[in-house]
Simulated assay, not measured.
Amino acid sequence: MTNYTIRDEIREYWSLRAATFDEQVGHEIFSEEERQAWRALFLRHLGPGEGLRALDLASGTGVVSHLLDGLGFDVTGLDWSEPMLSRARAKAASRGAKIRFVMGDAERTLEQPGSYDVIVTRHLVWTLVDPKAAFREWHSLLKPGGRVLIMDGDFVSNTFVKRMIQLIERLTGRSVASPHRPDAMREAHERILQQVYFSRGARSSEVANLLRDAGFTHIEIDQDLSRIHRQQARNLPFFKALERQTQHRYAIVATKPA
């Protein structure tokens, strides 16, 4: 008998990924042009951060936390992987950034209700076991009028480009776009994906509906991420860049009623 759960497996998976997390496009930022593209997205939906508190959920090594810090927010980064947090704290120390990093579960944060003006997540929602409970939790953490910004995507559904890549890989026997991970890591990823809520892909319309059910209003879906994708494509193989630009990726901003 064991108490090992899907949540434990998710935490262990990302802890193992921590060592190479910042080597991958889409995790770390590799050019000033891409950094400015992310800043523009944040400013479009959140505005400047002077005097406002921001919570970066599933903060990883702190990439989004540093973007928020650069916009003037008072930032807390929350992650439940100690290896990720160790790298995040070291990065903040080396840059002289006053970012608070804490360990916690994004679905049950234990943070004080009504204590944040902004909550930001990137590539977290697709991994949630219980997004309904998570969104209610995030709603409770925000001050009245506070906003949540979700950046995520459907990385599961087959597209024409994805099928083309799979065919090329079968014919050539080599990877042209898939992540270069050890077999055990790929297997763990697939096993986790089969058990999370969005196992068939996190579509923006479904995420928006769940946010609405949790009490959020003024929900806006922004699929114009082309500026970011163009900059990321400069550091990706051709087929991986093509796949990224044709996936259903989006930003969703929603407001807690004042």
Rank of each mutant, 00 (worst) to 15 (best):
L141I: 05
L124K: 07
T121L: 06
G114D: 14
G114N: 11
T127F: 06
I150S: 12
L128C: 08
S140G: 14
M151H: 14
G114Q: 13
A134C: 00
L110D: 09
A133W: 03
S115L: 08
M151A: 12
V125T: 06
S140N: 12
G114M: 03
K132P: 08
K132F: 07
V125F: 05
Y116S: 04
S115I: 15
H139V: 12
A133F: 00
H139S: 08
T121V: 15
R136D: 12
F135Y: 06
G145T: 05
P131V: 10
V129W: 14
G146D: 02
V148P: 06
E137L: 11
D130K: 02
V120D: 07
H139W: 15
L124R: 06
P144Y: 10
H123M: 14
P131D: 12
H139R: 10
L141N: 07
K132L: 08
H139Q: 13
G114E: 03
V148C: 07
L128M: 11
V148N: 02
E137H: 08
I119R: 03
S115P: 03
L124S: 02
G146F: 01
D130M: 04
D117N: 00
Q112A: 09
P113T: 09
T127N: 10
L142Q: 08
V125R: 14
M151S: 15
S140K: 12
L124H: 03
R136P: 14
W126N: 07
K132E: 09
G146T: 01
Q112D: 00
